[in-house]
Write a protein that binds this DNA or RNA. Structure first.
Lengths: 219, 219, 219, 219
DNA sequence: GATGAATGAGCGTTCATTCAT
DNA sequence: AATGAATGAACGCTCATTCAT
């Protein structure tokens, strides 16, 4: 099984949530909720067990250590969060046909990821928090980003630049700015100000317009 | 002492790092470093004491609890990080005279905050991480943002919009997009990819250009 | 379950020492011994654990706090010590039939409590010592005394006074003097001078005789 | 300085509260109050220092250890509490002249000790509590009792017995019963039910009458 | 004499993990 | 597979005591 396959496997596992016993599902569910609320380090396994309605020992039957439980949540989480940036079927089509603009590509991506995050806020919170403290999670993320996201993104940007549809800045800068804008919006929307009143469709549109045309008029 | 004065006091205290005994300084220094590296919850007071070269009891002579130590680090940190967004003298001048553009205002802000973060990376990391888990820190931040940053930002954006220098989107959207772009750049630069090769001046320029004009040419 | 039943339940629980795991029994045993010897506050849980032959954590699995451990010892102890003053079957009989004198009632009580204390010296010591510092224990004791001991004692004394068998002093004074004499004897016997040579039967007799007739002859 | 002299010295020291700096007096005062309230082991020196209004170090300048502070309180306390049982001038007179009865001797003693305790409740509490846990205090007490109290008490009882004024029981029993009655009354009065309504003169009288004549009439 | 910062041992308690059932 | 009692290391924190000022 080469690395590609391994990732593919993880993706499938992630998307389809393979065979989990009901207890295991309960444990994961409880752990995600509490990890998101208090952070991994501040969460006790007994708390997870209680919330999941299982005995403490049961957790350790399925996950050798507390850390393995975290990784079992975060690693598939990273994949489910990042890979669809370019793996999504619509996106692929748009991108392959290039019949549509960069703007439309971004709109698809942002809409798709918006919906995913909307249903997985706690997971996103855990990923952001814990990646900062666990080297192996950071590696996981970087590896996926470098292998799956960046090349496609780079390819797209390069092509659009060649077609004269986006400015001729270094791809890395354009990608960074694009991702910063998308992620910044999503984090503001769901983590920083989730309780503000949002007109989501309008705000997505405006965000993409600002991303494409900036905030200076007539420019 | 009214609220303004109090904040001013905090800012001064912050900038000048008032009267700290040498041991207290050592403790803060050590705590900042370890909190940033492993997170507050995963850091033990004995570890801080060892790194600071003091007895564990000494920490508790200066800070009643471990949490108080965290707050003693983060609260002034938030102030030092956020208030200068608009309290900086140059920025104030630029803004008052409006002899220069929004672009130049942003350039001043981004340069100023860039330099601050450069010298305080661990502090930034702690602020971002721990605000997520400690309600009082979130409140601190929100209070400062709402009282000190947002009104000035709003005033500036409203004026520039009236002058036709920036697009007529809701101020909240423009502010969010602007901050997302600045913060996203700084976080990418110092926390996510600190070891990449960065031409900082060039990247700051490019970031502001993208922020102002978007990534679509001739538009 | 009304109050009566509840107390009865506690008494039974007390007398039969319901279901205790062996480790729990070991912990109680060790705690009683050390609390009696050094006092609650001066006893460390690690010491108890060592003497009980269990891990320190095991104590806290059975008793949430050190204080809860104390209360688990003292509260049933108070009940076992006080309630039988008048709940004892023989005493009840004597008292009901009144075929016998106050003297004989006291003799039964003193003999019965003497034997109980003989087997529970450390428990008595803990009760006396700790009731002074823990309001809830004092309350426990007062509640039992007021509800279970005093009314019966009062009834008996009133009856015997009416029958002209004891002097017409206020019942409270007679009860206080009686208890003081009994308790004073038992404490002297077991706590203050346990190592003196005692002819217990003779001393009990003499104590009751002094209690009944005073120390002045022919009077 | 032989033992007698030493005791005499202690007694004087006790009665006259020799040369104490004001700070030292404050410390003793604070310590007595807190030791009585929470017990020696549960009292921290910092608490004493705070209540006394001195620095923590100051306590240790006057008393090498916390325990020495306790002993400085309790040892003179024991003396002041016990020695006057027979050292009191009036008592001495009564006893020497034997112009009066055992009853009157007791009345003098009980009145005298009643007044002393009334002004020194916390001290009494500390003595009772801490004698149970500190061997040296118990020794102190026993030594004083055996050397100063018992011989005089014994002498008196023997004499009164010879004169046919009290029953011919062993002196030890009579002394124990007498002390138990006096101490039991005082402890009930000041420690167990201090807040009940007491007609002190009446109760002292009744106590002595019960002590002398028992509770059985016509006897 | 008086201070109070500093100490480090020891406290009560929690925790992730093990294992006999 | 699931349990939950048991573990003992480690935690945050307090304490009596020391000592330079």
């Amino acid at each position: 099984m080469d690395k590609q396959d391994y990732l593919q496997h993880l993706i499938n596992a992630g998307e389809e949530d393979v065979q989990l016993t009901p207890k295991q599902a309960k444990i994961l569910e409880a752990a995600i909720e509490i990890f998101a609320e208090k952070g991994y380090a501040a969460t006790s396994t007994s708390e997870i067990a209680k919330k999941a309605g299982v005995a403490e020992g049961t957790i350790f039957r399925h996950y050798k250590t507390k850390k393995e439980l975290l990784i079992s949540i975060v690693t598939p989480g990273i994949i489910k969060l990042t890979v669809p940036f370019f793996a999504d079927q619509f996106v692929s089509e748009v991108f392959k046909e290039r019949s549509e603009s960069y703007e439309q590509l971004l709109r698809k991506i942002i809409r798709n990821r918006f919906e995913f995050v909307q249903k997985n806020v706690p997971l996103l919170k855990i990923i952001i928090q814990e990646m900062a403290f666990h080297e192996e999670l950071k590696q996981s993320f970087q590896s996926i980003f470098i292998k799956k996201i960046f090349p496609k993104f780079d390819e797209a940007v390069t092509q659009f630049k060649k077609d004269g549809l986006i400015v001729d800045y270094p791809s890395s800068s354009i990608i960074r700015f694009t991702m910063t804008t998308i992620i910044g919006f999503i984090i503001t929307r769901f983590l920083i100000l989730p309780e503000a009143e949002w007109d989501d469709d309008e705000e997505i549109d405006r965000t993409i317009r600002m991303l494409m045309h900036g905030i200076q008029p007539d420019s």
